[in-house]
Design a binder for these strands. Sequence first.
RNA 1: GGGGAGAUACCGAAGCGGUCAAACGGGGCAGACUGUAAAUCUGUUGGCAGCGCCUUCGGAGGUUCGAAUCCUCCUCUCCCCA
Length: 375
Amino acid sequence: MEFNLAATEKGTRARAGVLHTSHGNIETPVFMPVGTAGTVKGIHTRDLKEDVGARIILGNTYHLYLRPGLEVLESAGGLHKFNRWDGPILTDSGGFQVFSLGDIRKLSEEGVKFQSHINGSYHLFTPEKVIDIQRSIGADIIMAFDECTPGNAEPEYAKKSLELTQRWLHRCFERFNETNPKYGYKQSLFPIIQGSAYANLRKLATEHVKQFDADGYAIGGLSVGEPETVMYEMTEVVTAELPENKPRYLMGVGTPVNILESIDRGIDMFDCVLPTRNGRNGMLFTSEGIINIRNKKWDNNHDPIDKNGTSFVDQYSLAYLRHLVISNEMLGAQIASQHNLAFYLWLVNTAREKIIEGCFKSWKEDMVKKLKIRL
RNA sequence: GGGGAGAUACCGAAGCGGUCAAACGGGGCAGACUGUAAAUCUGUUGGCAGCGCCUUCGGAGGUUCGAAUCCUCCUCUCCCCA
């Protein structure tokens, strides 16, 4: 998997690049819509591609393993064939579920024993097994199995947790190197840098990860409860040490402001559930600011959702969308999700253009102010 | 015409002498959500006002220290039999 830098800008670490995969090229910075269960909730792949302009989407190892299961995915010929998304796919390893499903799992040196949130059955996820599962799912980019350390972890715990993730990383690469893709195209394994809110740990983690000369590097364990300033600081610490010629992926981030600030700090790839989840729950990210579409003040406003919007759905009015969301009509969740995703893609696309033009920094400052406005 | 049941806050519906400004649902209003156990969750919903006061349980009277709860009359709904 090749990555080529197309442009950088002085006075910022922002980069524009192109990542080449077997399922197409990805221009960066990029936002990757999250499709945990093999679907970006509420959005057809046709709309993802043609309307939203998504270039790569996510899937999740834990969730897809439990349902529909590997037998179905393998007989379909992998996730691309199963969900009819022919662009690149990235699967998360289940490391985030170690964090988010903290109450129904048990952590050990060997791996993590999850109790299925679906039927209560037990499943041991080891680094080796997680690689095997991701071979079966067939994503272009697969993630190392890690422990996503909570944002408020004590130093001792953060250190122990990081060291476990590091040992698991060796096991991941070992299994990765002794197995082959199942569907005839290359897969790339990205390590995940942990270290919680501690700069010294983040530096150690970054150094450690570089020995694998991976096709890309991810930063995990951020936006998990720590203050935003910490998130930015940790991102800076890590990107300062990572090789320039490899893509950097900031996992699970974030708000539109978070994304612009992180691009400024040298991040190339993002994913986040906010545009879809918050969209379903009535929150719109627009070029003028944030809208809670359930609020009464929109009930008779017939302006378009976003007059600068790039999506087909932006032609719908605020009043109509409010009506749909308030009435719990499924189209409301779909329109809101599609708008938000299109907005996120517009945001990273524009950031890319501005980097190439050499005026990202000033555009960003301006944009961040607008994005914080609550309409 | 005869017999029965009932009227409670925006709606539905508990409550049947004090712990009732009144359970619970719904609806309304607002908030949260960051590698998705989420089309979810939380708060609030008589009026003022900083824990106190004021106006509420169909209407009017009454009993009582005290009434949404008991009594009388009135108004209106619903059901059954003619």
